[in-house]
Computed example of a mutant assay.
Amino acid sequence: MTGGFAGKTKFKKVAETAWRFSYFSFAVGLGYWAINDSEHLYDIIQCWTNWPYQHINDKVWTYYMIEIGFYWALLFSQIFFDIKRSDFWQMILHHGITIFLLFISFSINFVRVGTLVLISHDFTDIFIEFAKLIRYAGWNTTLEYFFVIFMIVWIGTRLVYYPFWIIYSVVFDAPALIEKTYSWTNITQSPIVPRILLGMLLGLLVLHIFWTILLVNIAIKSIKGGELGDAREEGDSDSDVELESSSSTDSETEKSKKNK
């Protein structure tokens, strides 16, 4: 076996997925605990009022630090330990953008909008990882029903809430409340950092669209009679088959020797 701690085995995939499912479930609960009494959770305009003199309480600080630490760990494990899937570079880009966004948003005190981005993304990731666990368990009928729920959550959070609620507010609400003369198109106007932040947010949206296309392709294949699978694993599925075939062949060889 080669690659990671245990090679490209089903056990390793399940272990990776179960770990991420556990973390994202914890992170969503932690995030809600951190901001459930904050006005910006229900009124996004509050993300920009009184900026930059917005107090960061201990709960939000703890939540942000844990998330930053997690994504650094995720980036590190993605590079050195996790199974290399077909969207390896897209995932590296995603983790890099996320870390950069967290760093910038914390540095310029855009933490309020940062918490909304984190919670909405982590919430969807719970469904992603749980769907993978169902698939690894071989519960194909359950997976088909759950895939519908997952797609609703994915589209609702990644393609509706994120662009039309969060990014929309960044583009149209933030300038008016922070500095009325601020123009996104005037690239020489200070401050420059919010433009970088917006660029990173749009970069995440591009990745969301890319993964949505993959998900739609999976759905189309399923409708045509195929099984629901993870398009990201197309590049490493052969290795699993080879390992299973090799194990099966070895087992048959041992049995034939005993019979002789």
Rank of each mutant, 00 (worst) to 15 (best):
R195T: 02
I167H: 04
P175N: 10
Q189K: 11
R135F: 06
I166P: 00
F103D: 07
A174G: 00
L201V: 11
L133Y: 02
F146Q: 04
E179G: 07
N186T: 15
W184P: 00
H95G: 10
F164E: 07
N186K: 15
Y182L: 09
V160W: 05
T157F: 08
F172A: 09
I126Y: 04
T115E: 03
I167Q: 06
N109Q: 13
I166A: 02
H121F: 04
L143E: 04
L201G: 01
F110Q: 06
T98S: 10
R135P: 02
F110E: 02
D122E: 09
P194F: 10
I108E: 04
G203A: 03
G199I: 15
Q189V: 11
A131Q: 04
L159M: 11
I104W: 02
V113C: 03
I149G: 00
I187T: 15
F110W: 13
H121I: 12
F164N: 08
S183D: 14
L204Q: 09
W184Y: 07
I166F: 00
E179F: 14
I134G: 01
S105G: 13
P191D: 04
Y145G: 06
L143K: 06
I134N: 01
Y168S: 15
S105T: 08
H94L: 12
Q189P: 05
P194C: 06
G138F: 01
N140Q: 15
L116V: 14
I155P: 03
E129M: 11
A137K: 05
F127G: 04
I99C: 05
P163C: 07
I104L: 12
S120P: 07
F127R: 01
A137G: 05
K132M: 05
W139S: 13
M151I: 15
I119A: 08
V148M: 11
L143Q: 04
I108F: 03
I187P: 04
I155Q: 02
L177D: 04
L201Q: 05
T188F: 10
Q189G: 05
R195P: 01
I178N: 02
T98H: 09
V193D: 07
E179W: 13
N140W: 15
L133N: 03
R135Y: 02
Y145W: 10
S105R: 07
Y182P: 06
N186H: 13
N140V: 14
Y161D: 08
L143D: 01
F150R: 08
